[in-house]
Design a protein around this nucleic acid. Sequence first.
DNA 1: AATGAATGAGCATTCATTCAT
DNA 2: TATGAATGAATGCTCATTCAT
Lengths: 211, 211, 211, 211
Amino acid sequence: MLSTDQPVTSRNAEKYDAILEEAIRVFAEVGFRNTDVQVIADKAGVGKGTVYRYFGNKEDLFWAACFSVMERLGNHVTRAVQGNHGALQTLRMAGMAYAEFFENNPHYLDVFVQDRAEFRGAAPDSHKQFQQEILQVFALVIERGIAEGEIRPVDAHKTITAMASMFYGTVNFACYVKDRYRLSELAEHGLNLFLAGIRQDRSDAVKDSDQ
Amino acid sequence: MLSTDQPVTSRNAEKYDAILEEAIRVFAEVGFRNTDVQVIADKAGVGKGTVYRYFGNKEDLFWAACFSVMERLGNHVTRAVQGNHGALQTLRMAGMAYAEFFENNPHYLDVFVQDRAEFRGAAPDSHKQFQQEILQVFALVIERGIAEGEIRPVDAHKTITAMASMFYGTVNFACYVKDRYRLSELAEHGLNLFLAGIRQDRSDAVKDSDQ
Amino acid sequence: MLSTDQPVTSRNAEKYDAILEEAIRVFAEVGFRNTDVQVIADKAGVGKGTVYRYFGNKEDLFWAACFSVMERLGNHVTRAVQGNHGALQTLRMAGMAYAEFFENNPHYLDVFVQDRAEFRGAAPDSHKQFQQEILQVFALVIERGIAEGEIRPVDAHKTITAMASMFYGTVNFACYVKDRYRLSELAEHGLNLFLAGIRQDRSDAVKDSDQ
Amino acid sequence: MLSTDQPVTSRNAEKYDAILEEAIRVFAEVGFRNTDVQVIADKAGVGKGTVYRYFGNKEDLFWAACFSVMERLGNHVTRAVQGNHGALQTLRMAGMAYAEFFENNPHYLDVFVQDRAEFRGAAPDSHKQFQQEILQVFALVIERGIAEGEIRPVDAHKTITAMASMFYGTVNFACYVKDRYRLSELAEHGLNLFLAGIRQDRSDAVKDSDQ
DNA sequence: AATGAATGAGCATTCATTCAT
DNA sequence: TATGAATGAATGCTCATTCAT
């Protein structure tokens, strides 16, 4: 499951996890550049040298943190859409799960923000691949929806990308309007409008769109 | 037009502008934390002390850069929607102008990203106010569209916030899928779906939605 | 009266005095190294360039401040011993005047302290000369006292130097014991003991020595 | 013996001492404000980071240097008065030891001067306490001298403070008259006069007063 | 003569990384 | 294998001095 291949002969999984967990927390809290590796080591209860032995360098530690968060997000969303549902319903559940994930774990979001800011999408291939796999899963959901007549005939992949962008934007933008809207509130509203836009039959669109 | 009032007795507008311009460029290029003020000074052709005389400190310089980009974005979008158009058409023009702005000036986007990452939306009030004013303008457009029967009866402010979030997300997310889609392509697709979701009459929705 | 000879063609005495006055105050308050010439200029109500036109550079300004304080001290002590008094009485009056001068104007003392710390007695000759002249005056007082049988036959110049050292030390050391003794209290006690040590006739020494 | 407790997990005593030694030298040589910590690090043969690891910051390093000098002075004087001597003799030995200490190590004096100039007696409590302890030791010597009839009945603590002030002043003032007197010469003269002023029986005073 | 805008050398402090133990 | 002491490159900011106006 782990993508990085350190020249490490033996590993203590507990220490590894502890470091990773604290890394996520600290990177999120103070940002990549402001993070002092010593702090992570201290919080994880290991020596600084151990952090370097396990993760190579600060940047790779950050990537590992990112990847871990991405996995957790993937797992969370995947679990949320378990079961047989219509395509639209699946998309709705996925979207809300995505928003909840970040609403409940704001520091996870901050890791992504750091990633975007510091490395402009220059993530390791493993990350991109993981991301693409997730998108692909839901592109298939859209195609199924189209096939079943629930969704208008749209470019499935482009549409799921647009939807992902919207959610990505919502969770990020929410901090600017947090005095007025909760994240999940904003996410749901956007979701309603977006789904209304792709559904085949508009007659039932009104009911889940507020007002 | 400028909101910051430094304790500067007199200003040379050319130097001020040169510094600001290079600050935007450098902050965008290497990020806030990685930016060496000396580099900005050098590129602007002034002494480092002059940068500090004009902008106080690195953080304030960054805020000035952010604000300037925000103004430019505001001006660009405002100019794009000049003239009498239907509400939906106005929203479309605004959205596309927004996307174009960042597609043509990728470094402007990076300034915003830095802002989000380093300061988590803790911008000066002047920035937030400016942002709110822009949102308000387009909330009114939506209300007009509702009044004219072009747009479904939705919460105008929440809807424009959701739309802004979507665009914010699109321009930010684009870097992750740039191998597959151009920013404007993604923006247009999202825009079509979103507008389809809010338009009153779906019969004409198909025409501007792809396929 | 002024010792420094600047290449200044014309001078405005009021500005000159204002700068000097503020220089004494600021140097005393924050120390030579911590003094920002701009602050002196601002407080004196002149441009920074003017300070440099009048005093050449920061160090010379400092020397001028020192010299001015030295003059004031000299004047104060000289005035205090006006009139015909016995030698011991004259020394006593001078000593107490010296202590009072610094007790009433603590910032004057700080200028001397800065001088000692920053330049280790490397004052311009004009300063040393002034200092020697003062010492000489009181060396003569001691010689008079010896001649008149009031003072034991001691090396007059060495003795006045020792006495000056004692007072220099007292006003400087006082800050370390200020919780326990006032400066003038400490000065008087030292003075009593010292004078007792040089007076010819010890029978009258007891009266001015405490207890 | 050392009072400062840095947040340092382990110390290399040699490096610690080397840094402290060079700090004393450099602070004395160029003054606190003019001291570049890099220079101390270089002279001590350690990295700059090591200086900070051991002493926290420049100011604390300075205090450690001051305290160390104070300890050395205390040790030197204490050693000098070992053995059974009369009170006056003990005071004389202490005074001369004090003067010798600074005459032989002029840079030690400069550290104290810096302290006085930069921090106006705002030393850490540990320093003040150390100082008071020393004064107290000699206040007891004076009281013993009074009890044994060697010294006139004076306020012992005030008198030792005055004597300390005199010596403090002498070692500091000496630089201004170094062309004429050596420090120890001046100190001895002052000492003679001072002791003459406090001794009970003047008949034997003449012998140790010069001329 | 008077000014104050412009400059850049200078310095305290931090922290990623290494490597001896 | 694990550690943390040691390092030195990197950088924000200040301020004495100059000089064009």
